[in-house]
């Protein structure tokens, strides 16, 4: 195992990956239980527009994507509450419009190239030091904010009305959760790419939820599955020359599959 860590790029990928894995798993649990699992998918598509804009303007695509995703997440949330649209209509619309915009901008900037592909399919093993620092700091902030608001998020997810009646500012926390999701999606994009990032948010959390009998267990189990999928995925990608993104997502799906079968067989 030590041999991997002799390689700087592997160390970087490993470090950033673990932090992002934790952020994804934590948020994933809340999103699934709030029946908001698709928001990751929608925001990923919007993120594509952000990346395309960055490529078009020739400024840091990661930073532009972050900005665009956060703004979009805010609008989606407001639309959901105020526009009287059913369920995830706002997400469905934003997701396709984001992608359409992205395609347009990419074509205009003539950047249908390797660079774009790395955003679409992820390229964690090629992550640069500056991006590692950026990712770790942001992932750390996400995790910290979720931990600080853990009980409030749990309360409002479980029983929104009682949470509100107990004085919790649920609307403000909705906003926070949405923005944190946007940040996490952009970070996850570096690991597995735009096309697979929603899997990183949803699958480990869904796997943990299969067998958890309490909330703490769900959090611990999902985080463990998320980290393990990323670490093993990276090692496999490195050893067998496989794409890291595909390996990571398939591994987390394997964990989900095993736990799903386990839960069904326990009945």
């Amino acid at each position: 195992m030590e041999v991997f860590f002799l390689y700087g790029f592997f160390q970087r990928a490993f470090l950033a990956g673990v932090f992002i894995a934790i952020a994804c798993a934590l948020l994933g649990i809340f999103l699934i239980l709030r029946r908001d699992a698709m928001i990751g998918h929608g925001l990923a598509h919007v993120t594509f527009a952000g990346v395309a804009l960055g490529l078009y303007l020739n400024v840091m695509p990661l930073a532009v994507a972050l900005f665009v995703a956060v703004v979009a997440s805010w609008i989606i949330m407001k639309l959901k509450v105020k526009a009287g649209l059913h369920g995830d209509t706002a997400i469905a619309i934003f997701s396709s419009v984001g992608f359409a915009l992205g395609i347009l901008l990419v074509t205009l900037s003539q950047s249908f190239n390797v660079d774009l592909f790395s955003y679409l399919f992820g390229e964690i093993l090629a992550i640069e030091t500056s991006e590692v620092v950026f990712s770790i700091v942001l992932a750390f902030v996400v995790v910290l904010l979720v931990v600080v608001n853990y009980h409030k998020f749990m309360y409002m997810t479980f029983d929104r009305e009682s949470a509100k009646a107990s004085g919790i500012k649920v609307d403000r926390l909705d906003g926070l959760l949405t923005v944190l999701t946007a940040v996490t999606v952009v970070l996850g994009m570096k690991v597995v790419g735009i096309l697979l990032v929603s899997a990183l948010v949803v699958i480990p959390a869904a796997a943990g939820l299969q067998v958890a009998s309490n909330f703490k267990q769900a959090i611990v189990l999902s985080t463990f599955i998320s980290i393990t999928s990323i670490v093993i995925g990276l090692v496999l990608a490195f050893l067998l020359d496989l794409p890291a993104s595909g390996s990571i997502v398939l591994l987390s799906f394997l964990a989900f599959g095993i736990l799903f079968v386990f839960r069904r067989s326990r009945r």
């Binding site: 931990v147 608001n149 009980h151 749990m154 107990s166 004085g167 919790i168 958890a212 309490n214 769900a218």
Partner: peptide, 19 residues
């Protein structure tokens, strides 16, 4: 996935400013 204990804890914890 929430235990009875956790449900009751929500009441106490959510009234705190810092967890």
């Amino acid at each position: 996935p929430v235990s009875v204990k956790e449900v009751v804890a929500m009441g106490i914890q959510s009234s705190r400013r810092f967890p």
